[in-house]
Lab assay of single mutants.
Amino acid sequence: MDVFMKGLSKAKEGVVAAAEKTKQGVAEAAGKTKEGVLYVGSKTKEGVVHGVATVAEKTKEQVTNVGGAVVTGVTAVAQKTVEGAGSIAAATGFVKKDQLGKNEEGAPQEGILEDMPVDPDNEAYEMPSEEGYQDYEPEA
């Protein structure tokens, strides 16, 4: 019985440690998101679009440190934060509304985080759909 109880105690310690790591990862992701939003706020009209992409990228980098179902929630929060940063930029006159959601080359930025393969159960990952990809044929 002692062996059984000791095993359960060790398992509990492992769960607590994993929860603490997840909590730490979420806190880091939130900190990076805040950094990115402050970065966007300090940019001029020309830099705002690039700044919004930076927020998304920093958040995406930190999301990889967070495991399990938390990833889905962090990704949703990050996307809403990026959308909010863009709205703030438009409201303050840093950028025109028609410039939001495009990178410096004018290509749409939507789907940055949505296409990231995420499995809350950590069982399997699927690649994003290939609808947006084109076949590449090298020139002879």
Rank of each mutant, 00 (worst) to 15 (best):
M1W: 00
D2A: 15
V3E: 01
F4Y: 13
F4D: 00
F4V: 02
F4P: 00
M5E: 01
M5Q: 02
K6L: 03
K6N: 05
K6T: 07
G7K: 03
G7V: 04
L8D: 00
L8Q: 00
L8G: 00
L8V: 07
L8F: 03
S9Y: 03
S9P: 00
S9V: 06
K10N: 13
K10W: 05
K10T: 06
K10C: 02
K10Y: 05
K10P: 00
K10M: 04
A11L: 07
A11V: 08
A11Q: 00
K12C: 05
K12H: 05
K12L: 15
K12A: 08
K12T: 05
K12G: 04
V15N: 00
V15A: 03
V16P: 00
V16D: 02
A17G: 07
A17H: 09
A17F: 06
A17Y: 04
A19S: 05
A19Y: 15
A19V: 10
E20M: 10
E20P: 00
E20D: 06
E20H: 14
K21F: 07
K21Q: 12
K21V: 05
T22V: 04
T22W: 10
T22G: 06
K23D: 00
K23N: 00
K23T: 10
Q24P: 00
G25N: 02
G25V: 14
V26W: 15
V26N: 00
V26C: 14
V26P: 00
A27T: 12
A27M: 08
E28K: 08
E28H: 14
E28D: 08
A29P: 00
A30W: 14
A30C: 06
A30M: 13
G31V: 04
K32F: 08
T33F: 02
T33I: 05
K34D: 00
K34A: 12
K34V: 14
E35I: 12
E35K: 14
G36C: 07
V37G: 02
V37L: 15
L38W: 05
L38K: 11
V40Q: 01
V40H: 02
V40M: 13
V40S: 01
G41S: 08
G41H: 14
S42W: 10
S42K: 11
S42Y: 06
S42H: 15
K43S: 02
K43W: 08
K43A: 04
K43N: 03
K43Y: 07
T44V: 06
T44L: 11
T44F: 10
T44Q: 00
K45A: 13
K45S: 04
K45W: 13
E46D: 10
E46Y: 10
G47A: 13
G47L: 15
G47S: 15
H50P: 01
H50C: 09
H50R: 10
H50I: 01
G51D: 01
V52H: 01
V52K: 02
A53H: 10
A53D: 10
A53N: 03
A53F: 02
T54M: 15
T54L: 15
V55R: 01
V55L: 10
A56N: 03
A56W: 12
A56D: 00
E57F: 09
E57P: 02
E57C: 05
K58Y: 09
K58H: 11
K58M: 09
T59Q: 01
K60W: 13
K60L: 06
E61T: 07
E61D: 02
E61P: 03
E61C: 09
E61R: 07
Q62D: 02
Q62Y: 10
Q62F: 14
Q62H: 06
V63F: 04
N65H: 04
N65W: 15
V66Y: 10
V66H: 03
V66C: 07
G67C: 12
G67K: 08
G68C: 01
A69K: 12
V70I: 10
V70E: 01
V70R: 01
V70Y: 08
V71R: 11
V71L: 03
V71M: 14
V71Q: 09
V71H: 07
T72I: 04
T72Y: 02
T72D: 13
T72S: 05
T72A: 10
T72N: 14
G73P: 02
G73Y: 10
G73I: 12
V74A: 04
V74M: 11
V74E: 00
V74C: 09
T75I: 08
T75D: 02
T75L: 11
T75R: 03
A76H: 03
A76S: 12
A76I: 10
A76E: 04
A76C: 13
V77H: 01
V77P: 01
A78F: 14
A78G: 03
A78S: 05
A78Q: 04
A78D: 00
Q79C: 07
Q79N: 10
K80I: 07
K80L: 12
T81Y: 12
T81K: 02
T81A: 10
V82Y: 11
V82D: 01
V82I: 05
E83S: 03
E83T: 12
G84Q: 14
G84R: 10
A85D: 02
A85S: 07
A85N: 03
G86P: 05
I88L: 11
A90L: 10
A91Y: 11
T92G: 07
T92K: 04
T92A: 13
G93A: 15
V95I: 10
V95L: 13
K96I: 02
K96L: 12
K97H: 05
K97A: 09
K97G: 12
K97R: 14
D98E: 14
D98A: 05
D98V: 02
Q99I: 06
Q99H: 12
Q99Y: 05
Q99L: 12
L100I: 13
L100M: 15
L100W: 02
L100R: 12
L100D: 03
K102S: 02
N103A: 03
E104V: 01
E104Q: 13
E105S: 08
G106F: 11
G106T: 07
G106P: 13
A107P: 15
A107M: 04
P108D: 01
E110K: 12
G111K: 06
I112H: 15
I112Q: 04
I112A: 04
L113A: 08
E114T: 07
E114W: 14
D115F: 11
D115H: 13
D115R: 08
P117Q: 11
P117L: 03
D119H: 15
D119Q: 12
P120E: 05
P120Q: 14
P120H: 13
D121G: 15
D121C: 07
N122G: 02
N122W: 10
A124S: 05
A124T: 02
A124W: 10
A124P: 02
Y125M: 03
Y125F: 13
Y125Q: 15
E126R: 08
E126F: 08
M127S: 09
M127A: 02
M127P: 04
S129R: 04
E131G: 11
E131F: 10
E131D: 09
G132S: 04
G132N: 13
Y133K: 03
Q134Y: 05
Q134N: 07
Y136C: 11
Y136M: 09
Y136G: 04
P138S: 08
P138T: 05
E139H: 11
E139S: 15
E139M: 07
A140Q: 15
A140P: 15
A140E: 06
